[in-house]
């Protein structure tokens, strides 16, 4: 491992604590404003939502999954053909309180696309946002309602959330793309 271009932001144990805290924050909020329906954004938003569901003693199979590829505003900038993943909402969007779940909040464009994708599927009563990491540098007026950790990184740095389910390890790293 090269220490010069990779910094560990959170180790597995810290990540676990962060999940616990987020789950209890959600539950607190639900006491005030009613229950949320969890919808994870592909790819890592889904395991995050599933973990939170488990921590709140709910069925992790009942979370919604959302692919935002068809709602992106930067389609042609990809060099590979886009892979559209499954969007599956096992509950009615209409009238529900949706909690969108994603790993990193950065420019806000992913969330913008997710809002469009979600509202095309129905008319939720409200939509809230949960992210593990907020790295700042927003390009749209979008903020999270629940945030695991706010970090300040350089523009050339990448915040990478690694999860057991998708990456085989629980860890959050900061990678310098120029190094």
């Amino acid at each position: 491992m090269n220490a010069s271009n990779k910094n560990i932001l959170l180790e597995a144990i810290e990540l676990k604590a962060l999940f616990d805290r987020l789950a209890s924050e959600i539950k607190e909020r639900e006491v005030l404003s009613g229950p949320f329906q969890l919808v994870g954004i592909h790819t890592r938003g889904i395991p995050i939502a599933q973990r939170l569901a488990k921590l709140m003693n709910r069925d992790p199979d009942q979370i919604g999954t959302l692919d935002i590829n068809l709602y992106r505003d930067d389609l042609s900038q990809a060099s590979e053909m886009p892979v559209v993943k499954e969007t599956e909402i096992p509950f009615s969007i209409d009238g529900s309180r949706v909690l969108l779940v994603d790993d990193v909040l950065y420019t806000g464009r992913t969330i913008r696309a997710a809002l469009d994708a979600l509202t095309d599927l129905g008319r939720p009563k409200s939509i809230a946002l949960l992210v593990l990491i907020d790295r700042g540098e927003r390009e749209l007026p979008i903020q999270s309602d629940f945030c695991g950790k706010k970090v300040s990184v350089q523009p050339q740095e990448n915040v990478k959330v690694r999860l057991q389910e998708t990456d085989g390890v629980d860890r959050i790293e900061v990678i310098d793309r120029q190094a």
């Binding site: 068809l70 709602y71 559209v84 994708a117 095309d120 599927l121």
Partner: peptide, 15 residues
């Protein structure tokens, strides 16, 4: 994925 879109009430995406 597009068959799923075809099954929605709003059959249009901004892709």
């Amino acid at each position: 994925r597009f068959r799923e879109v075809g099954g929605r009430p709003i059959k249009k995406v901004p892709a």
